[in-house]
Design a protein around this nucleic acid. Structure first.
Length: 544
RNA sequence: GGGGGUGUAGCUCAAUCGGCCAGAGCGCCAGACUGUCGAUCUGGAGGUUGCGGGUUCGAGCCCCGUCACCCUCGCCA
């Protein structure tokens, strides 16, 4: 923009008063910059506008932070002045990418015969699963709607209704604690299909994911996506959402240490636990301080300790190395493929806990050692999840996915005898260690659904009162069906290589579920409460 | 509910062992200068060190409490 000082002094005077973020209208001629004035570092560096008029449409206060691409500002300020934060180019890009992803999905699923049907956001609060946000009913004093944590039951009913391919971009609400990749309200790409097997759902979803990465990222994902059983994922990676971009896989070395003299390990094995090990390449030089920090790290996951063993040319070294015989040391090295200069880490504990804590350490070390390749994408289906898990809290079986998930046909016989061994027709889509979505083939026969409720300790009466409509519906010819829901927010994060879900949501909430811009949640007037027949027993929190 | 981190000017940070009037860069304001654009030069304004209490001759720093933000375990069928 050029405002000639000599010829148009009025214009120049106005231009001098312009400040950052002013809204202006300029009329003028676009022209090539004179030789010597080109600036090839700027996208518009070869041209300029010679202004013939300028009007200030609106002035702007100095913003609380600069509106530039790279800022390093408190999250508080960004969230309080979110409308300014969103002016910044990276945030614009994030939301545009989000928009484009949804466009690609809609177009893809429309092309494949899916019908977009909206389901209620205000519905019944359902037992089990995520805590619901509640909405008091004015018309029916003392009753509440629950905000939908997912359209699960409705989409199943749509299958009964004959919409054999349904999809929806839908807001879901869960009143649970937040994380870097979790917000209380988030968006799912939800779909359900009739007359399908798990393979059919996975295939059609892969197509959409492939298309999204191709169009939005220029990345060709390998089809079909590889699959791995839950059991294998836990054994090799200590997690049900493994990041395949790096190695450092876990090994179970319980067998090799069966006869060990190391008391800690011996006791764990005697108690039915397991010893898991992994090899951290080139980490043999870690100091005591460093390995102590890693011990603290795994203890955060409930492990009692971490055994570091330095891999030297002839033997293993370290505080506890002397407890392991030469044969055991050789077996350990072989099991994890350790080379001289590496460090072997072991956790001895209850099998799952050992795997999970070491799995977490694996991710931690990969990050620390720079083994994570940012531009690589490794999708994976994790399948054959357990149908149930045992809840210590409730001292009962609970559904790992949800109570409408079908058991695998070959495991039906185990429902009564060994329910914890029953696998589900469930599948999770995992990409670079992020759970992108999960789904299952559902139970479509009333008898099996009743059986599930029984096993889950849900009485006939309770099932009838909470899910009668679903059980009723299954009596009117429900087709076999299944589906999946993908996390739209997380998908966008992955496309953009971001670590925080807040950066792909226009107006997100803080970790304490507050909106720093609007101040939500807030108190309401006594009149509003009275209309809703709601009495507040806790005082409102004191402001900071 | 638990663990960890952070909180000093509008923004990002500094401040030795607890010690002189809490500093710097950016931004902001004023002036000068200026066809290279994150200009430059000169000058200036700007502080309840998150909040409350305590210890001390003296607290940004130590102690107790509290609030907020971030990461995380539990939680998220």
């Amino acid at each position: 923009m050029v405002f000639a000082a000599d010829r148009q002094s009025d214009l120049h005077k106005i231009a001098e008063g312009l400040r950052p973020e002013f809204v202006i209208a300029v009329r003028g001629h676009v022209r090539r910059r004179p030789e010597g004035s080109l600036n090839l570092k700027m996208p518009t560096g070869e041209i300029e506008v010679e202004a013939s008029s300028v009007e200030i449409l609106n002035e702007a206060k100095t913003p609380p932070f600069e509106i530039v691409a790279d800022i390093n500002v408190n999250e508080d300020s960004r969230l309080k002045y979110r409308y300014l934060d969103l002016r910044r180019p990276p945030m614009q890009r994030n939301l545009v990418t989000r928009h484009k992803l949804i466009q690609v999905f809609r177009e893809y699923f429309d092309r494949n015969g899916f019908v977009d049907v909206e389901t209620p956001t205000m519905t019944r609060s359902t037992p089990g699963g995520a805590r619901n946000y509640l909405v008091p009913s004015r018309v029916w004093p003392g009753t509440f709607y629950g905000l939908s944590e997912s359209p699960q039951i409705f989409k199943q009913l749509l299958m009964v209704s004959g919409f054999d391919r349904y999809f929806q971009v839908v807001k879901c609400f869960r009143d649970e604690d937040l994380r870097a990749d979790r917000q209380p309200e988030f968006t799912q790409f939800d779909l359900e299909m009739s007359f399908v097997q798990a393979d059919d759902v996975m295939d059609v979803v892969e197509g959409g994911v492939e298309e999204a990465f191709g169009k939005l990222r220029g990345v060709k994902l390998p089809r079909p996506f590889p699959r791995m059983s839950y059991a294998e994922a836990m054994a090799r990676f200590g997690t049900d959402k493994p990041d395949l971009r790096y190695g450092m896989e876990l090994s179970d070395v319980s067998g090799a240490l069966k006869e060990t003299g190391f008391r800690v390990v011996k006791e764990v094995l005697a108690a039915g636990g397991a010893v898991k090990a992994m090899c951290a390449p080139g980490c043999g030089g870690y100091s005591r301080k460093e390995t102590d920090a890693l011990t603290t790290f795994v203890q955060g996951y409930g492990a009692k300790g971490l055994v570091p063993l330095k891999v030297e040319a002839e033997a293993l070294a370290g505080q506890t190395a002397k407890f392991f015989s030469p044969a055991e040391q050789a077996a350990l090295r072989a099991a994890v493929g350790a080379q001289e200069g590496d460090m072997i880490f072991m956790v001895a504990d209850a099998s799952d806990l050992a795997a999970q804590s070491l799995g977490a350490l694996r991710m931690h070390l990969a990050e620390k050692l720079g083994m994570v390749k940012a531009d690589e994408y490794r999708p994976l289906w994790v399948v054959d999840f357990p149908l149930f898990e045992f809840s210590k809290e409730e001292n009962a079986l609970v559904a790992r996915h949800h109570p409408f998930t079908s058991p695998k046909d070959e495991d039906l016989a185990l429902l009564d005898s060994k329910p914890l061994s029953v696998r589900a027709k469930a599948y999770d889509l995992v990409l670079n260690g992020v759970e992108l979505g999960g789904g299952s083939i559902r139970i479509h026969r009333q008898e099996l659904q009743r059986k599930m409720f029984t096993l889950l300790g849900i009485s006939d009466e309770e099932a009838r009162s909470k899910f009668s409509f679903l059980l009723d519906a299954f009596e009117f010819g429900a087709p076999p069906h299944g589906g999946i829901a993908l996390g739209v927010d997380r998908f966008v994060m992955l496309l953009l290589g971001l670590d925080h879900i807040r950066d792909v949501i226009a107006f997100p909430k803080t970790q304490k579920a507050m909106c720093l811009m609007t101040g939500a949640p807030g108190t309401v007037t006594p009149r509003q409460l009275q209309e809703l027949n709601v009495r507040v027993v806790a005082p409102p929190p004191k402001p900071a």
